[in-house]
Design a protein around this nucleic acid. Structure first.
Length: 570
RNA sequence: GCCCAUGUGGCUCAGUCGGUAGAGCACGUCCUUGGUAAGGACGGGGUCACCGGUUCAACCCCGGUCAUGGGCUCCA
């Protein structure tokens, strides 16, 4: 059976139950969605969590009654009359927008709904379901429309599938980067600093440094040049670029001595100015400018979410200026870079999307077509499958988005590649061709990890906080059993530090068990336990984060092993 | 920005039909020197997010603000 049909039927049963319990509600829509279903209702007083239990109870009654879903086809006018009579103004509005002459309605028991169908044959088939949450949602998703009350639920064919799904939700909650970030002291946010602004604690700062160092090395290897721009600028540059017109409301703007300034919301114009700082020849291209660029955007308060949606963030941003005939190769190289990055950071699967021209955009149709053709050509060359998202592109060009699949199957938007024929036009960028004439370069915008913030959030959730050795801010905990081994513990610390292994010495006056527990809950990859035996033999006893222990091994052997593991990014 | 919920020591949370608060963990001191996930005792720490109102009296009731969470809309 198609799970979506089951869920759609479950949503009708829920609406039926809600109507029975709260006759004054008006129906919105109730489709099946990715992991379940929802139904929107207009109601003066919002639903409360206790209502969900009552609604579920009523739903079980409806299921038990095993009422058949009856389909009826009728002319639009008749349906309109029917739903108007029922006082369902939202349904009436939907009917008016249906282009066909006839519409179908479904009825189970006393509940009738406008619906394309299909449905299961009777309510008795919907045995396994659960209501999950209450939320507000705009009628038809338009923010000037009234806000309806939405109830989310899910349904499955078997109890086991439902239990597995609930377990997955629980697991996701355990991995929540906000929880882990706090527990493991990676970062924090503060009322006094402001919403969406991140304070990195020592461990978060170190993790970011490790990632940023990796980025710089890898970019230099691939022919990028590192550039750095200021965090504020006069507004003029954004007027020139067109961002001012499109995104003024989302920019931090302030005034100094009558001159308007903005906090940088993007890195591209800076890179463009660097490009323009001298006459460029076709021989210079491609030029690849890379910047770990911190940008600030005044995102609406309601969209902020942990590290995933913030107001201040640092992109691993680069702009590639190239000849049109180099575009496909450049995009291909970026895709290779992304694959390498993903593998390095431990993500094994990904999904690709192409987004096309949005309603609000600049540039000619011809430019958009050429840009999009270049993107698809590169993906085809790599043999990658992709989905097309109509109208989801940036205002200056189409883009490729790459989403990483994490350890529990969720997707994270990180890398994007955007093809831009528009900004070079707007800034009148040129290069001198072989014939001595001026030509327009193509500009590619791209990020590999996206933003440090979001990527760190993704990493923490992917690994549930247990970062691999090369990324973990603390790689080794040295745990002396008693104070008598302190001198040897210091020696071990020194030897590891000399080899650039990041260690923490657990020297407190506590029991061995206690210290192991601490190191374990901090998710430190290796614990080296040193007692009298180890001190006299110059060895360490190794306990891995997994709980696996091994007897004494030579300190040098451990260092060797650890360095190798770090090298292969384990 | 919109709808709903939440905001109590560093953390997790309890509590008061309105009479200025409590636990565990963490922290400090002392005792304990212990072989692979919590040794013991004592102690310090909160103007109950902020501002205003009602009241003899507000952490608790009302209004506003800020922040967080679940969604919607949005994401150059």
């Amino acid at each position: 059976m198609d799970i979506n049909i089951l869920r759609h039927s479950a949503s009708h049963i829920m609406a039926d139950a809600v109507k029975q319990l709260f006759p004054d509600v008006k129906l919105g829509i109730g489709p099946a969605v990715e992991n379940g279903f929802y139904y929107d209702f207009e109601r003066k007083t919002p639903f409360v969590p206790e209502d969900l239990k009552e609604i579920e109870k009523k739903m079980h009654e409806i299921v038990k009654a095993d009422l058949p879903f009856k389909k009826e086809q009728m002319p639009k006018e008749k349906a309109l009359e029917l739903f108007n009579k029922m006082g369902e103004q939202y349904k009436a509005e939907l009917i008016k927008d249906i282009p066909d002459k006839e519409v179908s309605i479904y009825t189970q028991g006393k509940f009738t709904d406008l619906c394309r169908g299909p449905h299961v044959s009777s309510t008795g088939e919907v045995k396994v379901f659960k209501l999950l949450s209450i939320a507000g949602a705009y009628w038809r998703g338009i923010d000037t429309n009234p806000m309806l009350q939405r109830i989310y639920g899910t349904a499955f064919e078997t109890k086991k599938e439902l239990d597995d799904y609930l377990k997955l939700l629980e697991e996701a909650q355990k991995r929540d980067h906000r929880k882990i970030g706090k527990e493991l002291e990676y970062f924090s946010m503060h009322d006094e600093i402001g919403a969406g602004l991140i304070l990195y604690h020592p461990k978060g700062g170190l993790l970011r440094t490790i990632i940023e160092d990796w980025e710089k090395r890898e970019h230099l290897k691939r022919g990028y040049q590192i550039v750095i721009g200021p965090h504020i600028s006069k507004s003029d540059i954004w007027v020139h670029s067109g961002h001012y017109e499109n995104y003024r409301d989302l920019m931090y703007i302030f005034e100094i001595e009558g001159q308007e300034y903005t906090v940088k919301p993007m890195n591209c114009p800076g890179h463009i100015l660097i490009y323009q700082s001298k006459t460029r020849s076709y021989k210079d291209l491609p030029l690849r400018f890379f910047e770990l660029g911190s940008v600030y955007r005044y995102e609406k308060s309601g969209v902020l979410h942990g590290l995933l949606r913030v107001r201040g963030f640092t992109q691993d941003d680069a702009h590639i200026f190239c000849l049109e005939e180099q575009v496909v190769d450049e995009i291909t190289a970026v895709i290779d870079f992304v694959s390498y990055a993903m593998k390095t950071f431990g993500f094994n699967e990904f999904m690709v999307e192409i987004s096309t021209r949005p309603p609000k955009s600049i540039g000619s149709d011809q430019m958009w077509k050429r840009a999009q053709d270049a993107l698809t050509a590169a993906l085809d060359k790599k043999g990658l499958k992709y989905q097309i998202c109509e109208g989801e592109g940036a205002f200056y060009g189409p883009k490729i988005d790459i989403k990483l699949k994490d350890a529990i199957g969720r997707f994270w938007q990180c890398a994007t590649i955007q093809c831009d024929f528009a900004l070079p036009e707007r800034f009148n960028l040129t290069y001198v061709g072989q014939d001595g004439k001026e030509y327009r370069p193509v500009m590619l915008h791209r990020v590999i990890l996206g933003s440090m913030e979001r990527f760190i959030g993704a990493l923490l959730e992917h690994y549930a906080g247990a970062l691999p050795l090369w990324l973990n801010p603390v790689q080794v905990a040295v745990i002396p059993i008693t104070d008598k081994e302190k001198a040897y513990a210091e020696e071990v610390k020194k030897r590891l530090s000399e080899n650039d292994i990041r260690i923490e010495l657990y020297g407190q006056n506590e029991t061995l068990n206690y210290k192991i527990r601490q190191a374990q809950s901090e998710k430190i990859p290796y614990m080296l336990i040193v007692g009298a035996k180890e001190a006299s033999d110059k060895t360490v006893s190794v306990r891995a984060r997994s709980g696996k222990t091994e007897g004494q091994i030579k300190l040098d052997d451990f260092i060797d092993r650890a360095l190798k593991e770090i090298q292969r990014h384990g």
